[in-house]
């Protein structure tokens, strides 16, 4: 079946019951989303579908025909990180980094639909994503920074060209 990931269409040869996470990592070699618990309880596998944050470990690809899937790879590149990535770098929010892609995608989904989300809304939204290192405060700071960077990026003529 066909899957639309980060703006391009991929022909995937997999059982329709296969969770999206496995297809992303094994078939498409997009390794940002992580396997954590496999139960939708930790959030490490979070990606966006049609602008909403979902657990890719619990989502069979059967459900995704014709829908837009976005992963951290779709937020920017190493040379030209997107505002969410830039904010996480500037705040040095990662320790081991395993939860970070999930955190980023859930935060991205929130700020895309609600650019002025309050600090409390950010905290509540990220409730479903766990971090075992304890960098929560930095993660929250990074998302707040991303909230500002995304506004600047939205105003700038060429987005994603911010110099590090």
């Amino acid at each position: 079946m066909k899957l639309n990931v980060n703006g391009s269409t991929h022909e995937v040869d997999a059982d329709p019951a296969t969770p999206l996470l496995y297809v992303l990592r094994n078939d498409l070699e997009l390794n940002a989303a992580k396997f954590g618990c496999g139960l939708g309880q930790c959030g490490a596998c979070t990606v966006m579908v049609d602008g909403k944050a979902i657990f890719s470990c619990l989502t069979p690809i059967l459900l995704l025909e014709g829908r837009e899937i976005k992963t951290v790879e779709g937020l920017g590149t190493i040379d030209s990180p997107g505002p969410m990535q830039q904010a996480f770098i500037e705040e040095q929010a990662a320790q081991c980094g395993y939860c970070i892609p999930g955190m980023m995608m859930r935060a991205q989904a929130l700020l895309q639909s609600k650019p002025d989300a309050s600090d409390a809304e950010i905290q509540t939204t990220l409730e479903t994503n766990l971090c075992r290192c304890g960098t929560h405060m930095r993660i929250l700071k990074a998302v707040k920074r991303a909230r500002e960077l995304m506004k600047t990026a939205a105003m700038a003529p060429a987005s994603g060209e911010r110099k590090v």
């Binding site: 329709p16 296969t18 969770p19 619990l58 059967l62």
Partner: peptide, 22 residues
Amino acid sequence: SADPSASGGKGAVIYEAACAVC
């Protein structure tokens, strides 16, 4: 059978991937 083309199969696929793990 968890086969999307079978009758009731789509529901079975969703259950197996999304629900049965817990």
